[in-house]
Design a protein around this nucleic acid. Sequence first.
DNA 1: GAATTTTTTCAGCTTTTTTTCAGAAACAAG
DNA 2: CTTGTTTCTGAAAAAAAGCTGAAAAAATTC
Lengths: 225, 225
Amino acid sequence: MRILIVEDEKLLADSLQTMLEKKGFDVEVAYDGESGEEYALLGVYDLLILDVMMPKMNGYDLARQVRAKRLGVPILMLTARAGLEDRIEGLNAGADYYLTKPFDTRELLACINALLRRQGSQVDELTFGNTALDLSTGMLVCQSRSVRLSAKEFDVMRCLLQAGQRNLSKEVILARVWGYDSNAVENHVEVYVGFLRKKLASIGSNIRIEAIRKLGYHLEVAQPC
Amino acid sequence: MRILIVEDEKLLADSLQTMLEKKGFDVEVAYDGESGEEYALLGVYDLLILDVMMPKMNGYDLARQVRAKRLGVPILMLTARAGLEDRIEGLNAGADYYLTKPFDTRELLACINALLRRQGSQVDELTFGNTALDLSTGMLVCQSRSVRLSAKEFDVMRCLLQAGQRNLSKEVILARVWGYDSNAVENHVEVYVGFLRKKLASIGSNIRIEAIRKLGYHLEVAQPC
DNA sequence: GAATTTTTTCAGCTTTTTTTCAGAAACAAG
DNA sequence: CTTGTTTCTGAAAAAAAGCTGAAAAAATTC
């Protein structure tokens, strides 16, 4: 997830960069409007954070340049100018959010998440070992390989991932996936665990679904023997 | 462009409605959280404007419900609660913008425009892969070749393009194209997806309309194998 | 009002998913 | 080692979801 910060207050820019990098973003910084434009127009970023008042080119004009080039990247305006007119100008120039300095770190992060979520570039997933279940597409992903899970496979896998290393009885899985009052039997769970084990193996996952007699299932990371 | 306002202060709600209708939007209003939820989950709106403090269900929970149902509709939170924690909760609940009362009409409009712009609702062309849908002529264009889409084909294609790589359930397509109260059935969507696939192929588009069982459809760029 | 286009309906087909079942394998206890 | 139970598994049947072509109905155009 690549973020470009365009901000002339070096101190603020750098602390922002540090903070966002800690959160796992890939951050680059430009210290004036013109070089900011140069970077932004590369079109490689998932989010732009722009200051308004900057040397050489202000944030509004930079936003307009970006939009004129038809780049759809979300833009977060970050500025000390709190006036109503400023906010309106910012939004009309093509910004997607207008945040006023001084701002709280958690609020900034919430904004960033909201903007990335909207772009669909934020994935929500459950992970265990080297494997992730993408909750929006129902794909089981391990490094570069992935398989699609059917609806029931997905439900069972999600239960297991939510429980993690904790144990889950077949009864509970049955109730959560097939419903409390269905007439499904425990063999259904066994069959689906079988399906899942095959698919996990097919993408080279190190997740093992471990059975414990009379108790149920739980996940483990396979030991390299 | 359909907007749903969920707001219990009748006076405010109605003046908002009037104002937005003057601007050419198609506006509906719900006066409490529960009926708001009912409307919102129909999936037919292009924007939700939610108050936070409401009888029966608050705006945060409503936003969470909408997101839980995987609806990507933009949400604008409109509220008197100006606190930092409130803003953060709102954004994390799934809102896209947090505007504090009292607000200026022009600012609200700028926000609405920003949100709709992001959805691609105000451009005159939607593109994906090597193919574009011209919204003014209803032509599907791929390089030099193009076909005209019928009205329904156009509506379905627009939904799909707006969602892009994100998934769209048949239910939502049905609601957006045929209306939530029509007696259209899911096979209609299947038939139209069939029509669109034929037309896409006929102009050499690299867009594939991918079906995912139980989930719906989404677009992909066909890989050159 | 005839011709054309668009939309709806529907039945049958293919594919995928889910269920069923019976036998094999694994395990724990005596 | 045997026994009884539990879990695993592969194959087959059943059900569900999606696709498609053709025809009927409705709307639009000329």
